[in-house]
Design a protein around this nucleic acid. Structure first.
Length: 727
DNA sequence: GCTC
DNA sequence: TATCACG
DNA sequence: GAGCCGCTGATA
């Protein structure tokens, strides 16, 4: 596989700052577009192997980086009220104890909260349609009224009714599906609005129904549309990747899917959009939530699609799997399994479920009891962590996003079905102020500040979850994590609208330290150290004023300061993940991949991309060498551009990669933070549990203030704990 | 900072 | 090895 | 008054 990177060490001899590298240490040519700031660097593509230490790798990276070190810095200090803010998501807590079933039939498509097949009663609007939730002002009552058909002033006679019906039917027959869809609110709006919420099986789902070629009456299509609408779905008539959550199609509408979505391959669909068969809908409506029947898993379907479409496919294959021959076999294998099993069949046979069963649980726990019971127990034990924290700022919804959201609320009442915490918390002002304070503390270096930060994090999260306006000191104190001091601060905010403390706290050093800490790899210590050395701007840092030197990672962090600190649109995260998964599956078709983090939580924007990687071991194999190959491939594909941290042991089943990536190589393409984590297959169960809808789990397993979605690791700990405690 |  | 930063 | 992340992972 890989070329050895032998003489990497040589870079040691060179002054890291000045040298320009035009050739990779392997001797293989490395394209280093030094002039364009977002140059892709692939040195590490060859360096990804156990032989090389990350250090040497990065070293080379920096050499190049240094040459390009013109940081586009508008010196806007504003950015720096940064990512570290933690907000609680508006998602309310459901108390269900039932565990959602595994639902990824093929073991490759990720599992999303918003796609939860929990019964509707347990589902929330927030968990269904994130984008809308975040962006649309949610005209709640409006939808209903709108949908109500105008009542004729006089009760018509039987005959008239009949005639009208006939006419209507005739008219409907002439309609295109799209036109027909538009009539649904009139037709069923009222009916639907009277339905109890738990009958709205598809509430919150934005469904794009792909109908067959107009080969007949289209009556079937109309019926299905009716059903969808009546089940509370928002029926989409056109493909809007931002809104569509599900695509319903069947095998014979394959072409139409592509057409409707304006794409060439099914694989181009964003991963957050589920493609399901009609059967899935039926199951939803019947309350069979245990299966998810996919129309076309993006990956495995890909081959078939491309075969049909030829040209594209060949190209794709050639470019992506040109090298190791085993890739082809694996690809073929995938194809075979595909062909012999329709999605449906697979669902029934459950082969695809395998990866989703948490095997480790029964395997490693000594008892024969329901393995989940342990987790419930654990969950209770750790219930102190009331609230999940979220790093997104709700108010970060930009005007454009907002307007877009409301604009596209073509359908209306999708919010009706799920009257949930509408997002804005009654104590937002308090939260904001405290957050500011927390930011300040977290920018400081004292150990006290560290704990204060920790403390604020908890209290803020709980305040954010507090359903009503805080009006009194005792009221404030009643909130978990809010002690005397914070309660006093809250009262000050409530009464004066201000927090005196903030005014004094925002000193120059803090502001500058915050600025510096926006550089990846720079924490409080470094930031203040620089400050004390007289540095005040990023420009100073860049110039190495007063002889400060940057670590290799910091160089990258500085160079891409804005890129790293900005959030990316959800769609971009999805796209990158898609590409990566595609490549990964050519390495091993049985890989299980999952995108996590804020994406998974349904955020409209993502601070980074977090990918979980594992592989079922039922055939005796593991993903032990996947990370190495994958990283190499991703570098080759110029998806990965810079390594921030490569796993110490690439062969380890549990490894963490951190780096920068880009969705394509267009000049000026922004670099996005990406983490790829592999876990032993046994931890997957925990990972899934962690993300699975049950809030008792979620809350408790979001152990100890770790913002990091590293469920598997946590799960491991949990298991260890369980074992030790003989649970 | 809060909690035990 | 200790410190630093990260998620 | 003590504890409050880390069988962390990287760097110097």
């Amino acid at each position: 596989m890989s070329s050895q990177v032998d003489e990497i060490g040589r870079t040691d001899a060179e002054p890291p700052r000045k040298k320009r590298v035009s050739e990779s240490p392997t001797g293989s040519p490395v394209a280093v577009p030094i002039d364009e700031g977002r140059a892709s660097l692939q040195a590490s593509s060859s360096g990804i192997n156990g032989v090389n230490s990350p250090k040497t790798l990065n070293k080379e990276a920096t050499v190049i980086v240094n040459d390009t070190l013109h940081v586009s810095r508008e010196a806007s200090v504003t950015v720096i009220t940064n990512e570290r803010a933690t907000f609680r998501s508006p998602r309310p807590i459901t108390m269900s104890k039932s565990l959602p079933e595994p639902r990824d039939v093929f073991g490759t498509a990720p599992l999303y909260l918003e796609d939860s097949s929990l019964p509707p009663t347990l589902t929330t609007a927030a968990s269904t349609s994130c984008i809308d939730e975040l962006t649309s002002p949610l005209p709640k009552a409006k939808g209903k009224g709108k949908a109500k058909p105008p009542k004729p002033p006089k009760p018509p006679t039987q005959k008239e009714i009949k005639a009208a019906k006939a006419a209507k039917l005739a008219a409907e027959k002439k309609m295109s599906p799209v036109q027909y869809a538009a009539t649904l609110p009139d037709k069923w709006g009222e009916h639907v609005s009277k339905l109890p919420r738990n009958k709205l099986y598809l509430s919150g789902k934005c469904i794009l129904y792909v109908w067959n070629e107009p080969s007949g009456s289209m009556q079937g299509t109309r019926n299905k549309m009716d059903i969808l609408y009546k089940a509370g779905a928002t029926l989409m008539t056109e493909y809007d990747p931002e809104r569509v959550t599900h695509i319903v199609a069947s095998l014979d509408t394959q072409k139409n899917v592509l057409q409707m979505c304006g794409i060439r391959k099914v694989t181009e669909l964003p991963v957050h959009i589920k493609t399901v068969t009609w059967e899935w809908i039926v199951h939803q409506i019947q309350g069979i939530n245990h299966t998810e029947i996919y129309y076309e898993p993006f990956i495995s379907r890909m081959k078939q699609v491309s075969q049909a479409a030829k040209g594209e496919a060949a190209k794709d294959d050639a470019s992506s799997s040109a090298k190791p021959s085993y890739l082809e076999t694996s690809a073929r294998k995938r194809e075979e399994t595909d062909d012999e099993g329709s999605p449906k069949k697979k669902a029934k046979h459950g082969s695809g479920f395998q990866p989703l069963q948490p095997p480790s649980l029964d395997a490693s726990s000594s008892s024969n009891l329901d393995p989940l019971a342990e987790f419930y127990e654990q969950a209770k034990l750790m219930d102190e962590f009331e609230v999940e924290e979220d790093e997104e700022k709700p108010q970060a919804v930009t005007p454009s996003e907002a307007s877009e959201g409301s604009k596209t609320v073509s359908g209306r009442w999708q919010c009706d079905g799920a009257p949930v915490s509408s997002g804005v918390c009654p104590n937002q002002d308090i939260v904001d102020k405290l957050l500011e304070l927390r930011e300040i503390h977290s920018a400081r270096q004292g150990s006290d500040d560290l704990w204060r930060t920790f403390s604020y994090r908890k209290s803020i999260a709980n305040i954010k979850a507090f359903p009503k306006r805080i009006e009194s000191y005792s009221g404030a104190r009643s909130i978990k994590g809010v002690g005397d001091k914070t309660a006093l601060k809250i009262m000050e905010i409530v009464q004066t609208g201000e927090l005196e403390r903030l005014k004094h706290a925002r000193t120059d050093d803090i502001v500058v330290a915050q600025l510096f800490q926006g550089i990846y790899g720079v924490g409080p210590a470094t930031a203040f150290s620089w400050y004390s050395q007289g540095l005040r701007t990023l420009e100073d840092v860049k110039n190495g004023k007063n002889g400060v030197s940057l670590s290799l990672v910091q160089e990258i962090g500085l160079k891409f300061y804005d890129d790293i600190n900005d959030r990316m649109p959800r769609s971009e995260a999805a796209e990158i993940f898609c590409k990566i998964r595609q490549i990964a599956l050519t390495i091993d078709a049985k890989l299980y991949m999952e995108i996590m983090g804020s994406f998974r939580r349904g955020k409209a924007t993502c601070g980074d991309i977090d990918i979980l990687l594992t592989r079922p071991t039922d055939d005796g194999k593991t993903h032990h060498d996947v990370m190495r190959v994958l990283l190499r491939r991703l570098h080759e594909e110029k998806i990965l551009t810079y390594d921030l941290a490569t796993p110490d042991d690439l062969d380890d089943l549990e490894a963490t990669y951190r780096g920068l990536c880009q969705v394509d190589t267009a000049p000026g393409r922004r670099q996005r933070r990406i983490d790829i984590l592999s876990v032993p297959y046994g931890s997957l169960g925990g990972a899934l549990l962690y993300y699975t809808g049950d809030d008792i789990f979620n809350r408790s397993m979001r152990l100890k203030a770790s913002l990091v979605p590293r469920p598997y690791i946590r799960c491991l700990r949990l298991l260890t704990f369980c074992r030790r405690a003989r649970l």
